[in-house]
Design a protein around this nucleic acid. Structure first.
Length: 974
RNA sequence: GCCAAAGUGGCGGAAUUGGUAGACGCGCACGACUCAAAAUCGUGUUCCUUCGGGAGUGAGGGUUCGAUUCCCUCCUUUGGUACCA
């Protein structure tokens, strides 16, 4: 093999790596570890497109580099195999989702193999495998058997809570629990029945069952988490989502809100992503207080961040779903309020959001009592108050809050200014500084002091206290679906119990269909015998999609362990992820939940880290460029401005030349003439990207792709004529322009847009090494960019050039054993240094550039020195492993290049003897002069000023100042 | 609306702490080799220019001997998020 034949070469080495298990990672105490992790994919039926592997390539480069640097590298891959598409497919076809999933996984693995990744496939995990989800269920069981102790600020076994109850009741317990948890004494606890005890414990468990308002998607027949809902529609499928009150499994992630927030400061994650998580957690400091009403047992709790504005309260507002709405509504307001509440409840998320400007609400007829002034304050119900945030009720301060202001204006409620100098005649003033007025005992105070004083007073009167509120809600942990991990719980009456560890995994039962039962139960309701040995029914919902992905990074460390989810030894050695690469779209989903699970596992002592990923990089998305053509809908008669084509009538007859064609046929118009006829109805249609080059449609290819007789007579109108029946007709005088323009658009790659670029095709044409290097070369990793094959030839050319460095004109391998020259060493060591720096800062694109420069320079020096080329192959191998292996072998090495060590750059080759200084005068570069590096600054100055050229520029003036920055510049100021 | 990131040739994109803007690649043009093509190699390529030079990193202003880089105002794009009290 003499030419660079990537096809056979890449196949050969991929096989070699498999056979020799080159990338097997075993615990080795003697070596430092490095854990490079990719977000594992959901194996969709469409296979990989060129965008998916971008992050994998980057992590592979780092993994291979770290290995060369002497690290023991764990670089695993697996599959997030439970998911909706496989289930939807199963519902339609009756094929078991496990079969579809297995097929997709094997296709994915085949595709991934083609890239030459250094994955250790022995570590593979699949979340849908019972030997994996056994441990997902195990963690769920542990969550159920844990509570959150605010005193120790961590999760503890539920037994410790029971012991406290048995000794003291719950009066001294400081735990995270349901809002409605009542206080009870030791005596009361002991008097509880077993059912009552269990019901009470459920209020403390980290996995619990509760009535929750959920995002219900009727089309999908399941609930969705907040991050699965976009603008009131389901993320997958785009079906409408409504709010519904349901009994649901939840995880008490709110217990960890503060630690999830503070933990962000300890990890090296992208700042925008951290910010997203901070916003999602939404910590706000304020106060909670209760307003008494005329009904003795009904006091309204509100949360506010502006307790200083308490004297500006002129009304209270309840969310329509608020439990006190019914109690507080007076008889004469009943009809109106009930009507309003009904209407608000039935509105979908979408309606509510698109309609934020309409002000609506109803007066309940009741009044609350202002805690300080004793004034009567009307209580309203309005849907601008959300039941899901704070207490579901607000104290309205029209002077300080724009929404309250608008509401007050609309319903003619009073507005009391409470900060001196603010103007509330036209809008609210949310200023947070100034002196309080109209404010009773806090009059004359600054806002800051007023806040403290008001809280003090609330606490004294025992009607309120300072409170931290979080936006984050507990995570709903159940889906009414088949294809997920069964929740390992059963019911005795209405009390849930979890299975014992020894009974796991609770495997998915066979069902006759994958859709809900007639009675509307989840698909698991179809399973026969879905119950414990003594006949207690199992839970029918399965876990949400994010369950399996919340801890997989630990399983990779020890995937075959049947006794533990990860052994103590494996976890102690691999510890945490050193580099995690994946998309930012998981910011408030997977990346938050997995941090939560890690902290829980840490609290209970099963892992020894409370953050699992030290460093995270979000790779950008590679988008596709879709191409559209313009089709005419309705035709009339006009002359376009730029040419003489006539559009005659309704039938789609294009010009006088083809007026005799009275058939109804398709007319497409080139995009460079569309504007001149834009008053007609046109529509855009996607075109398979293969039919388009440089925004020009290949009409024959297009018709071939459509393969539809209806298109046989289609007319394609261009600037100077039209194309029909295989030939082009010119209809105007002048130069022929038969170019049919398409309109490109950068969008997400998707089947329906015909813009998917399959990596298999690119690999077949250029090879995996070219594709790997090209994806790295395309631009910064974090940035999203459209896929564009325009530059791929350049990378391929580079690899061929590299190959030729090792071969003579007759394509025979030929390297020289002569000693390298200083210049050659300089080129090599500069490249080594650059490669190291670039990998440290993840600037993979400039690294590829530096290789190109290196090879260009070496080949112009005709350098084929063994000593240079050996090191060059090693530093290139993380990017282009196949060609590197081949050249490494040709150089006479018996082991794989992955066994080599990364050459250290030597400063001595890089030291410059002299430096060419740009000489600038008042900031403009006017000349260049060479000086030895050790030349004193004073001497440089003297020589510069003495030079003729500079003298000319100075025009006889004396410089005010001469600035010399070593190895940078000489600047003369006149 | 709020939060975040980003605006540099025909294109993708470079530019350590402020120090020769446009590296590297694509594209384009010309040339060499060839009967020819492919491949390869070489030269040029921000714009304007009277060939002296001038302008130039979204717009405007500021700090500086010197600004793509720092500060202020504005514009545009892309993500995220929202009656969050």
């Amino acid at each position: 093999m003499a030419q660079y034949d990537y096809r056979s070469l890449e196949k050969k080495w991929q096989q070699y790596w498999d056979e020799h298990q080159t990338y097997r990672a075993e615990i080795n105490i003697a070596k430092p570890k490095f854990y490079a992790l990719d977000m594992f994919p959901y194996p969709s039926g469409a296979g990989l497109h060129v965008g998916h592997p971008l992050g994998y390539i980057a992590s592979d480069v780092v993994a291979r580099y770290k290995k060369l640097k002497g690290f023991n590298v764990l670089h695993p891959m697996g599959f997030d195999a439970f998911g909706l598409p496989a289930e939807q497919y199963a519902i339609q076809t009756g094929q078991h989702p496990a079969i579809t999933t297995a097929q997709n996984i094997s296709r994915y693995k085949e595709q991934l193999r083609g890239f030459g990744f250094s994955f250790d496939w022995d570590k593979e995990v699949q979340t849908s495998d019972p030997s994996y989800y056994k441990w997902t269920q195990w963690i769920f069981v542990r969550l159920f058997k844990s509570w959150y102790n605010n005193e120790s600020d961590k999760a503890e076994p539920i037994d410790t809570l029971i012991r406290i109850f048995e000794a003291h009741g719950n009066e001294k317990v400081n735990a995270v629990a349901d809002e409605d948890t009542p206080a009870f004494t030791l005596a009361e606890w002991n008097a509880f029945s077993e059912v009552e005890k269990q019901r009470m414990l459920l209020k403390y468990r980290l996995a619990y069952l509760a009535n929750t308002i959920v995002n219900w998607c009727p089309e999908l027949g399941t609930v969705l988490s907040n991050d699965e809902v976009k603008d009131g529609f389901s993320e997958r499928g785009g079906f409408p989502v409504i709010r519904k009150d349901m009994l649901q499994w939840n995880l008490r992630i709110t217990a960890y809100a503060d630690r999830l927030l503070s933990g962000l400061d300890t990890i090296d994650w992208p700042e925008p992503l951290k910010e997203m998580q901070r916003n999602w957690i939404g910590k706000s400091l304020g106060a909670e207080l209760a307003f008494k009403t005329e009904v003795p047992e009904a006091s309204i709790k509100v949360f506010t961040t502006r307790i200083d504005t308490i004297f500006g309260v002129t009304f209270l507002v309840l969310a329509p779903e608020h439990e006190l709405v019914e109690t507080l509504t007076t008889a004469n307001r009943k009809a109106a309020v009930t009507d309003y509440v009904e209407q608000a409840k039935n509105r979908s998320e979408r309606d509510r959001m698109s309609d934020v400007k309409t002000i609506s609400g109803e007066f309940t007829g009741s009044y609350a009592i202002h805690p300080f002034s004793g004034d009567k304050i009307p209580v309203w119900v309005a849907d601008y108050v959300l039941i899901g945030y704070g207490t579901g009720a607000v104290m309205a301060v029209p002077a300080g809050d724009q929404r309250d202001y608008a509401f007050a204006k609309h319903f003619n409620l009073p507005i009391i200014p409470i900060i001196e100098g603010t103007d509330v005649s036209a809008m609210a003033d949310p200023t947070k500084t100034g002196t309080m007025i109209n404010s009773g005992f806090i009059n004359g105070m600054e806002v800051k002091d007023a806040t403290l004083r008001a809280i003090e007073e609330l606490e004294k009167l025992k009607i309120g206290k300072a409170k931290t509120n979080f936006r984050i809600r507990d995570a709903i942990f159940g889906r009414q679906r088949y294809w997920g991990e069964p929740i390992p719980a059963y019911f005795d009456g209405d009390i849930p119990y979890v299975l014992d560890e020894s009974e796991l995994p609770l495997t998915l039962p066979e069902v006759d269909a994958y859709k809900p039962t007639e009675a509307g139960e989840p698909p698991l309701g179809r399973a026969t015998n879905w119950q414990t040995a003594d006949g207690k029914p199992y839970e029918l919902t399965t876990m949400p999609g994010w369950a399996g992905s919340s801890w997989y990074f630990f399983r990779y460390m020890d995937p075959h362990n049947e006794k533990e989810f990860v052994s103590k030894e494996a976890q102690a050695y691999w510890k945490d992820v050193d580099l995690y690469i994946g998309g930012a779209e998981h910011a408030t989903g997977h990346l938050l939940y997995s941090r939560f699970w890690t902290k829980f596992l840490y609290d209970r002592g099963w892992v020894n880290v409370d953050e699992y990923a030290k460093k995270l990089i979000n790779q950008g998305m590679i988008q596709g460029i879709s191409e559209k053509i313009c089709k005419f809908g309705r035709l009339g008669s006009t002359t376009s401005k730029t040419n003489t084509i006539y559009f005659q009538n309704e039938l789609g007859i294009v010009g006088p030349e083809i007026i005799n064609n009275d058939k109804n046929f398709h007319v497409f118009v080139s995009y460079d003439v569309v504007n001149s006829i834009s008053r007609y109805q046109t529509s855009d249609h996607y075109v398979l990207i293969d039919c388009v080059t440089n925004n020009e449609l290949d009409i024959n290819k297009y018709l071939e792709w459509r393969a539809d007789p209806e298109f046989a007579d289609a007319v394609f109108v261009t600037k100077s004529g039209y194309w029909q029946n295989g030939s082009f007709q010119q209809v105007i005088n002048g130069p022929i322009e038969d170019i049919f323009k398409t309109k490109p658009e950068v969008e997400k790659m998707s089947k329906s847009k015909y813009n998917v670029v399959n990596p298999d095709d690119v690999i077949a044409q250029y090879g995996a090494d070219t594709l790997r290097m090209y994806e790295m070369f395309l631009g910064p990793l974090e940035q999203s960019k459209p896929w564009n094959t325009n530059g791929i030839d350049g990378v391929n050319k580079f690899l061929r050039k590299l190959w030729r460095l090792f071969h003579n004109d007759d394509d025979q391998f030929a390297v020289s054993d002569a000693e390298p020259t200083a210049e050659e060493l300089k080129i090599l060591h500069r490249t080594i240094k650059k490669t190291e720096d670039d990998i440290a800062s993840q600037s993979f694109n400039t690294s590829v550039s530096s290789f190109m420069i290196c090879v260009n320079e070496l080949s112009s020096l005709q350098c084929n020195k063994r000593k240079i080329l050996t090191d060059l192959v090693v530093i290139l191998s993380p990017y282009a492993p196949h060609i590197a292996e081949e050249l490494w072998q040709l150089l006479g090495n018996s082991e794989s290049v992955t066994q080599a060590s990364f050459p250290a750059f030597q400063e001595k080759y890089l030291i410059e003897q002299s430096y060419e200084y740009p000489i600038s005068i008042n900031g403009k570069v006017r000349a260049k002069m060479n000086f030895a590096l050790d030349m004193p600054v004073a001497n440089i100055e003297r020589e510069v000023l003495a030079s003729e050229k500079i003298q000319k520029w100075l025009e006889g003036k004396t410089p005010k100042k001469v600035i010399i920055v070593p190895k940078k510049i000489v600047n003369i100021v006149i």
